[in-house]
Design a protein around this nucleic acid. Structure first.
Lengths: 163, 163
DNA sequence: CACAAACGTTTGTCGCACTAACGTTGTCGG
DNA sequence: CCGACAACGTTAGTGCGACAAACGTTTGTG
């Protein structure tokens, strides 16, 4: 009970390796959040270099694939909260990537439309994100990347149904 | 260019399904952060019910496995920033789970020691976390859980070496 | 002995998920 | 027809996690 305490704190000079406790190394939740921290940083910095944020991409992709929609619709499709959607759309309109116009059929809504410039931007961001994901998933083979994505999708699906 | 716009915003009443764009569904970074959001919430709420936070677990596990250490050492072992470590250790000492005493050999440091109560708490939290991870990984078979953990570990390792 | 480095601490920043509240506008049941 | 209610866009604010900056104290090092 007292023999093996202070094993490295005084004796061993702590050679480089951060010595993560095994309990933590095995914890899926921890692996997830740690990896996500790195991943988010990687993606955010990459997108920032292209004057974009991931929310921009989400909105542009949604508009491209499903056509125009109200802010609330976009909110549901992208998972961005409607509170935060306001700012995102401000940024996108500033850059001329989308257009925000009041919906004549329902004057509570704004109709958001992607612009030609927005489409070009989306294609650009597709490339940027492709490269970034190559970096993110570098240690994995194509097959493993697929496995990984499938596992993530299954877990995410389960926890969104069971919300 | 105008035929398929407003495809669902007006015509279809948007039946339940949130219609996530395919571009987003395939994005590993997005899957990661979405899942981590859910995972973090699950874990945080579960630990909160046991009057704990995940940082508590990290520190207790580190102390148990490697013995006492200074706050800076703990910081490196757990990945918690030294700025935040202060508060965590306050909470842990308040609950009598660790002891913080000035190190006589180096008066800059505090030596943090786990208490018997801390050890009991750690065992309790082991159980709590086991149950929570069962919920988190529910859709996966044991083999798949292992695959998942290995993939995460490999990715994380890669991005910590290449930090 | 001067200087740099490590330690613990306080304070603050940034991004993200999320809540609360408000005024406006549409819907629907009696 | 109207009164209750819901949806919309917007503003402001909360909580949390990761992190930077700066400070006084203490300790090794040239």
């Amino acid at each position: 009970m007292s023999a093996m305490t202070r094993a490295e704190a005084a004796d061993v000079p702590d050679d480089g390796a951060p010595q993560t406790p095994e309990r933590l190394r095995r914890l899926a939740s921890r692996l997830l959040s740690q990896l996500t921290t790195r991943s988010d940083r990687l993606i955010n910095e990459g997108l920032a270099r292209a004057d974009a944020r991931k929310w921009h991409y989400a909105v542009l992709a949604s508009l491209q694939e499903y056509g125009p929609g109200s802010q609330a619709t976009l909110s549901r499709r992208t998972g961005i909260y409607r509170s935060d959607m306001v700012g995102v759309l401000n940024e996108l309109t500033e850059r001329g990537l989308v257009e925000r116009a009041p919906d004549p059929d329902d004057r509570r809504r704004n109709t958001i439309t992607i612009s030609p410039r927005g489409r070009r931007r989306l294609r650009r961001l597709d490339k940027v994100l492709d490269e970034l994901h190559d970096e993110l998933l570098a240690p994995l083979s194509p097959v493993e990347r697929d496995q990984f994505a499938r596992l993530l999708t299954r877990l995410l699906d389960h926890h969104t149904r069971t919300s």
